[in-house]
Design a protein around this nucleic acid. Structure first.
Lengths: 343, 343
DNA sequence: ATTAAAATTTTGCGCGCGTAAATTAAGGCA
DNA sequence: TGCCTTAATTTACGCGCGCAAAATTTTAAT
C-alpha cells in the first residue's frame, strides 16, 4: 500500500489520473465507466487502499444500497436462521443488509422501522409480529419504502408476501397423524405472540373436519416468548391430568413441543409411535434442535432457504422494475413432513 | 404535526426560533443547551416531527454514536443471547449498536471489522473466534478504535477483556462430579471452532490432577458449528463402544452435550444421577435449551448479564476517560453450577 | 451598580461526495 | 477524411450538518 494515505475521493482520483466524478461513477457501478478507465482505477486501488466515506456517499444519494431486515426475535432460532439467509442473499446482490431484531416487542418493531427510516433504505424485508404489529404504522411505512413481508402476512401491507402455506402444512401433518394413529388434539397458546398461530389453529380445525374428526384445542395461558417453559409447565399439567382425551398432540410450533416433550419425560411417559409408547407429540417448523430432542421430534419443515431467497428476489425485482406491482404477489411454499420418532 | 414538512435543521431551527448550530448542540446532548432553549426546541419538536439526517451528522463528527458489536455466530443461542444484552445496554447508554454476526467464519469476522471501519464506530465490542481469528488483523483494528473483547480472549489485543473464568467453572463442575460419583472424562472436538475450548480442556486436566484423578480426554473429529450433530454422531459412537471407561462425561459445551444426550436416548441408556441410571452427562454454558433436554442438563451457567454489562461499561469507561488504560483489565466472572437431572 | 468570568449562542467555513449540465472523446457511416 | 451520434468525462454546485472562533448573554462576585 502507498505511504501517503488517501484521505478522500479527490486525492484518490488524482493518483489514478481520473476526475473525481468519474471515480464516483465507478464506485456506484464499475461497469458504467470505460474499460480503460476502470483498469486505471483498479490499478490505483491495488496500491492505495481507499474506500469512499459511507456517510458522505449516502447523504446525497437518491437511493442508498441499504436493505433493512426486521425480524421479531433473533433469539428464536427460526428467525436467526431465516435472517441469516436473507442477509447473505442481500450481500450477494451487492447490498448492505441491516438486521434488526425487535426482541419480542411490537413497540421495538416500530422503533426499528423508525431507525431504518433515517437510513433511507432502498427496500425493507419485514417479518412482522402479525396480529401484534402496529398495522397502521407499518402501512404508513410502506408508502415510503418498498416493503416485502415474510413469514407472517398482514393484509394489503407491503408490496409482496412470502411464507409457508400453513393450511397445506398442517393438513399434511393432520393427515399423517390420523392415518397412523389416533386423531390429534391441538396445543397452542391462548394469546399467541407467534404470528402464524391463528392460521395454524384454523388449518387444524378445517383439516380435522375434512377428515371427519372433531377438532379439540387446548390453550395454554401465558404470554411472552418463553414457549418451551409454557409447553413444559402447562403442557405438563395437561398431560398429568390426562386432559387431552387422545394420545396424540399436535403443537402449534416446535418450541412448545420441545417443552412438552421435556414434561412428558419428567412424567415418565414414553413418547413415540413404536410399540409400548404412551403418546405421540408433533410440532411445526423443524426447529434446529428438534432433531435432538428425546425422542427426535416429528415436525413440518419450512423451506427457510426458499422463503429467504424469494423474499429477497421479490424485493429486488420491484426495485429494478421501478414501478411497484399492483398485484401484491403472495408466495406460499409448501411444508415438508419430517418424520422422526416422536409421532 | 405541522403541514409544511421540515426538510433540514436550518428550517427546523427557524420554526423553533433558535439558530441552527444551537439546535445541533441540542441533538448531540440535550443538556448542553440552556433550559429555556431546550424547552423551545422540544416544543417545536412536538409539532414538526423532524429528525436530523444520520448521514450528514456522522460525516463530520469526530466521533459517532455508533458501537460495533461482532459475534462469531448469531445462530448460536449463546451469542444471540449475549448479543441481545449488549445491544440493549448500548441503547440505554444512548448509542447505536450495530450487531454483526460472522456466521461462523473467521473470514467474515475480518469483513465485519472492515465494514465497521467505514462506519467510524466510537468503540467496538468483539467476541472473537479466539484461536481462529486473524489476530494481526484484529490487533491492527484496535490501533484505530477502542476495542473490548468478550467471551474469548486474545492476548494483548483490545483494551479490555470480559468473560467467564473457565478454570473456576470447570473446576466447580469437576469437583461436583467427583464428589457425587465417578470422576468424569472430557468430551470435546478435536479442532474446536469454539473459542474457549482449549481453556476448558486445560482446566479439566488441572482440576482432575488436583483431585488426584487421571484426566481422560476424548476428541471428536469434524469441524464447523454443528455441535449437536457431532455430539450425537461421534459421542454416540463412543457410547455404543463403551469407550469412555467411566460412567460420567463432561462435555466441553452444552451443545455437544445436547447431541450426546440425544444419542444416549437412542441407545436406550438412562442418563441421570438417580438410582437405576446408566451414566451421567454434564455440559457447560447453560444453553437456553438445556433446561428442556431429557433429562434436563446439569451444566455451568455463565453470567450473560454481568459479562454484557461489564463489557459495555468497560468500553464506555474508556471512552469517557479519553485515555486508554495501559493496564488492560481482564474481568472474569464465576460460573454457577446448575444442578439438574443429567448429572 | 459594575465588571469579570462563565455559559451559551451565533457566524463562518468546510467536510466528502452525488449529480445535473456542459464538454470532450469515441465510434459509426458514407 | 469529415460529420454525426452517443457515450464518457469534467465542470460547477449544493447537500445537511459539525465545529472552531467570535459575539453575546447570563451569572457571580465585588
Amino acid at each position: 500500500m502507498g505511504q501517503p494515505k488517501i484521505r478522500n475521493m479527490e486525492e484518490f482520483a488524482a493518483v489514478s489520473g481520473i476526475s473525481r466524478p468519474t471515480v464516483s461513477k465507478y464506485f456506484n457501478d464499475p461497469d458504467s465507466v470505460r474499460r480503460s478507465t476502470r483498469a486505471k482505477i483498479e490499478a490505483a486501488l491495488e496500491k492505495h487502499d481507499y474506500q469512499p466515506n459511507v456517510f458522505a456517499m449516502n447523504q446525497n444519494r437518491r437511493t442508498t444500497k441499504n436493505i433493512g431486515v426486521v425480524v421479531p426475535n433473533l433469539a428464536d432460532p427460526f428467525f436467526s436462521e431465516i435472517g441469516r439467509r436473507v442477509e447473505l442473499a442481500c450481500i450477494d446482490a451487492g447490498y448492505s443488509p441491516i438486521i434488526l431484531s425487535s426482541h419480542g416487542s411490537a413497540e421495538m418493531e416500530r422503533d426499528n422501522l423508525n431507525s431504518l427510516r433515517s437510513l433511507k433504505p432502498t427496500g425493507v424485508l419485514l417479518a412482522p409480529f402479525g396480529r401484534m404489529s402496529d398495522k397502521d404504522f407499518v402501512r404508513d411505512f410502506d408508502d415510503d419504502f418498498p416493503l416485502v413481508l415474510f413469514d407472517a402476512n398482514i393484509n394489503d401491507v407491503g408490496q409482496a408476501f412470502v411464507g409457508t402455506d400453513n393450511f397445506q402444512s398442517v393438513d399434511l401433518m393432520v393427515e399423517y397423524l390420523c392415518r397412523s394413529g389416533e386423531p390429534p388434539c391441538f396445543f397452542e397458546m391462548k394469546s399467541p405472540t407467534n404470528p402464524n398461530a391463528n392460521k395454524r389453529r384454523q388449518a387444524y380445525i378445517e383439516s380435522m373436519e375434512r377428515h371427519g374428526h372433531t377438532p379439540r384445542i387446548f390453550q395454554a395461558e401465558g404470554d411472552g416468548w418463553d414457549f418451551e417453559e409454557i409447553g413444559s409447565v402447562q403442557g405438563g399439567r395437561l398431560l398429568s391430568e390426562q386432559a387431552f382425551g387422545t394420545n396424540t398432540v399436535l403443537c402449534s410450533n416446535d418450541r412448545l413441543a420441545i417443552g412438552m416433550l421435556s414434561a412428558a419425560y419428567g412424567l415418565g411417559l414414553r413418547v413415540g409411535h413404536g410399540a409400548g409408547c404412551d403418546m405421540r407429540i408433533a410440532g411445526h417448523d423443524d426447529h434446529p434442535f428438534s432433531r435432538y430432542t428425546c425422542p427426535p421430534l416429528t415436525t413440518i419443515a419450512q423451506d427457510y432457504e426458499a422463503i429467504a431467497n424469494r423474499a429477497v428476489s421479490d424485493l429486488f425485482g420491484m426495485l429494478n422494475d421501478e414501478t411497484w406491482p399492483e398485484s401484491r404477489p403472495e408466495t406460499l411454499f409448501e411444508g415438508r413432513l419430517i418424520m422422526r420418532d416422536s409421532a
